[in-house]
């Protein structure tokens, strides 16, 4: 039976499924460093209480989680493990990168021989939450943005089609690409910052 693209049945199912997915984002307990403490603070501490959004069921096993909150620096040795964790999660899965280390390497950007400069080099990211570490409120804003994205974004007819990642604390129109372009331009423009050697797996240069 052929169902039309925008039939009433499918859109209603879409709405229901997206509503349920948005409101029950079970995070995977995955924290590597300081951001993990703020994530714990947000997800569990009595004052902030992520349970209000239905996201307090922190699953230790990636098989049961929907949301991978990457909290803390990812180094080369951990990168493969992060990717594996992501692959172990069942679809639909969402990734939130919290903190400047996961976004771009943060304070460990220069002169570090291990830090991965942005986890978007390893796995696709849905929401970036800046901060070092981000406050719990920042994490909530990221979660709400993700909820909005899920509610608007996906459809049963086209699973896996996703909006572009957004920076949670920036205007919603801003995408990662814009920011990367800006950073690249800044690096070229500012003459006092010279980098010796360009890492082969930095992709932003090619994009810019």
């Amino acid at each position: 039976m052929a169902v039309e693209e925008n039939s009433f049945l499918l859109t209603t199912v879409d709405a229901l499924v997206n509503w349920s997915r948005a409101n029950s984002l079970w995070p995977l307990a995955f924290g590597t460093s300081c951001c993990a403490i703020e994530m714990m603070m947000a997800s569990t501490a009595a004052r902030h209480d992520i349970a209000r959004f239905g996201a307090e069921v922190v699953r230790p096993s990636p098989r049961q989680a929907d949301l991978l909150i990457v909290a803390g620096t990812i180094v080369k040795r951990m990168a493969s493990r992060l990717k594996r964790l992501y692959e172990q999660m069942p679809e639909p899965r969402y990734v939130m990168a919290t903190g400047s280390c996961t976004i771009a390497g943060g304070p460990f950007y220069y002169n570090s021989y291990t830090t991965v400069r942005g986890i978007d080099e390893i796995i696709p990211v849905d929401v970036f939450v800046p901060g070092c570490p981000p406050r719990p409120e920042g994490l909530f804003y990221g979660l709400l943005v993700l909820q909005r994205m899920i509610k608007e974004g996906e459809s049963v007819a086209q699973p896996g089609v996703r909006r572009k990642p957004v920076m949670a604390a920036l205007p919603p129109a801003m995408t990662l690409k814009d920011i990367q372009k800006e950073i690249a331009a800044l690096l070229v423009e500012r003459s006092e910052v010279k980098t010796r050697g360009v890492s082969p797996n930095r992709i932003w240069e090619e994009r810019a």
């Binding site: 229901l16 499924v17 509503w19 349920s20 997915r21 409101n23 029950s24 239905g54 069921v57 929907d66 069942p90 679809e91 639909p92």
Partner: peptide, 9 residues
């Protein structure tokens, strides 16, 4: 919400 989500996972 949890039930529907788990159903479609």
């Amino acid at each position: 919400a949890d039930g529907v989500k788990l159903l479609f996972k």
